[in-house]
């Protein structure tokens, strides 16, 4: 038995037939072909799957596709401007070497955008605590924290040692 869901994804209306158990991330990846959103766990711990649902960061592995009926979804693929200009958070991740293998990155960037929007002026400690639900195995978080700070609170970025 399937249900039809209709939602707006990255500015476009999309619809699909989903099963009651289909996760939102499965709808995005497997049915809509948006493979930028990743799955790193099955216990809602890693945050590789973070997207925005109605302008809020959400772990898309923890929401059913049917729950997203009618909602406005933004994934990593829709973050840059239509002309390809990177979003300031994407640019900051590049500038501060906030990614290595790139697997946690889509979720980190979407979370970073959410943190900077909710908590302008956040200090380093706050940014680190806000990342509680996002795991990265490669970077030691240093470049990620610097990148998010540079958008949320540029004055708080520690002196840069890479020139």
């Amino acid at each position: 038995m399937t249900t039809k869901v209709t939602l707006t994804v990255n500015g476009q209306e999309r619809s699909a037939e989903v099963e009651p158990r289909t996760l939102l991330v499965e709808l995005l990846r497997d049915q809509l072909g948006l493979t930028g959103t990743h799955v790193g766990c099955d216990t809602t711990q890693c945050g590789c799957c973070v997207i925005h649902v109605n302008d809020k960061a959400v772990k898309s592995c923890t929401m059913l596709a049917v729950q997203a009926q009618g909602s406005n979804i933004l994934t990593i693929e829709g973050l840059a401007a239509p002309d390809g200009t990177l979003h300031p958070m994407q640019e900051a991740f590049r500038e501060h070497h906030g990614l290595q293998c790139g697997f946690c990155t889509p979720g980190m960037v979407m979370m970073g955008v959410d943190i900077a929007r909710r908590l302008p002026g956040a200090d380093e400690k706050t940014v680190r605590e806000q990342l509680e639900g996002n795991l990265c195995r490669c970077t030691g978080y240093q470049g990620i924290v610097e990148a998010i700070l540079s958008v949320a609170n540029p004055g708080a970025v520690k002196e840069h040692h890479h020139a």
């Binding site: 948006l34 959103t37 960037v109």
Partner: peptide, 21 residues
């Protein structure tokens, strides 16, 4: 030189090509 990474624009826009993709 601390050249910023060439692979980043692709990975930052969800255009990575991992096995499950």
């Amino acid at each position: 030189q601390p050249l910023r990474r060439k692979e980043d624009p692709r990975l930052l826009q969800g255009r990575g090509q991992y096995t499950d993709d």
